[in-house]
């Protein structure tokens, strides 16, 4: 119940884009091709089904004047009809198969992508590492991916623990992340927007709450965003936020989370250097507001039972200061 109430505000975030996670509302190059294929196959198959139904109804309800035929005449007629139907099936099936092969060819991504992102999926959140030729310019984020519109984006998919699946239906088909293997998916967003993705392979307790967002934006705002992400965490200016920073360092938070520019360098949980700039927290569970940050820190196990963030005992002052600090990490 609590979660339901807390999650409601997201609808505001998403309002206006009804098909935010839908194969039928494609906004990416691959997804558009796939939608076309889906529509063609569904249309052809519907016609086939209708034809079969017409024959079925006709066979059931037709008037039978003569004795039913053991007669060879009617059998021969039926043999011709059945053979014709089989031949038609062969043709339709061949057509669909070849069409499917052509679509597969069309999905081929470019050899040289413009952006390459390493995706490390783990129970139950997404780690996105933006890699640069200069490792010092690498940065990482969690559960939120920014990409430039119209550019080829390549994601290198790895799993930290069990099998997950990377799926943003509005942009491309899914691909699994398998421990011990690396898969590569290339896609291109054709329009700017916010697209929701979700783990599509059952990965344990909180499989349902393992979502992420892809924000496709103009090249310029993408560069701005990336530049900002490379900075260290914002220094607190107000008394409340600096108290929050002290709480973060003193309590258990820093053991699992990193805030670049501070002593906190844990790697088990998501990087929080710019958590204030993200739209959601807890893998798409809650909209990122100070209230939901506080709710999440206070009791993550009620909002997302069984996830790996423990309940850290905090006083109400500490909680307020900590959530203010989190919010200030733009």
């Amino acid at each position: 119940m609590k979660a339901a109430r807390a999650a409601l505000p997201i609808s505001m975030l998403l309002s206006g884009c009804g098909g935010i996670q839908s194969a039928l509302d494609p906004q990416g190059h691959s997804a558009i091709l796939l939608r076309d294929l889906i529509l063609v196959i569904v249309a052809i198959c519907s016609l086939v089904w209708l034809a079969v139904m017409i024959v079925l109804v006709w066979a059931l309800l037709r008037r039978r004047d003569r004795e039913p035929g053991d007669g060879q005449g009617s059998d021969r007629g039926m043999r011709i009809w059945v053979s014709g139907a089989v031949a038609a099936t062969v043709l339709i099936i061949s057509g669909l198969t070849i069409g499917s092969f052509y679509t597969t060819r069309g999905l081929n991504g470019a050899k040289n992508p413009d952006v390459t992102i390493r995706v490390r999926a783990q129970q139950w959140w997404w780690q996105f590492i933006y890699e640069d030729t200069d490792p010092a310019r690498n940065f990482q984020t969690a559960n939120e991916l920014h990409i430039p519109v119209g550019k080829e984006v390549r994601v290198r998919l790895e799993s930290v623990d069990v099998i997950h699946s990377f799926w943003v239906p509005s942009l491309a088909g899914k691909l699994d992340l398998i421990p011990g293997r690396e898969n590569v998916l290339t896609f291109r967003a054709e329009r700017s927007g916010v697209y929701r993705g979700q783990c599509a392979e059952f990965c344990g307790l909180q499989h349902s709450h393992m979502a992420f967002f892809i924000i496709a934006e103009s090249e310029e705002s993408y560069r701005q965003w990336a530049g900002a992400q490379r900075q260290s965490g914002a220094e607190p200016v107000e008394a409340e936020t600096s108290a929050g920073k002290a709480v973060f360092a003193a309590r258990q938070c820093a053991a699992c989370h990193t805030i670049r520019g501070t002593a906190a360098a844990g790697t088990t949980g998501p990087d929080l250097t710019h958590i204030g700039s993200r739209r959601t927290i807890a893998a798409g569970l809650l909209e990122n507001t100070r209230g939901s940050l506080a709710a999440w820190i206070a009791d993550p196990q009620t909002l997302k039972p069984g996830n790996n963030m423990p309940i850290v005992p905090l006083s109400s002052d500490e909680l307020r200061q900590l959530s203010a600090y989190m919010e200030s990490l733009k």
Binding site: V90, T97, I98, F101, Y102, T104, R105, N108, N183
Partner: peptide, 19 residues
């Protein structure tokens, strides 16, 4: 023979390196 022919079509249309 039918699926084998369809598979033949696949070998003509798709490259072996595509993943």
């Amino acid at each position: 023979a039918f699926p084998l022919l369809l598979q033949g079509a696949a070998t003509l249309l798709l490259s072996a390196c595509e993943r």
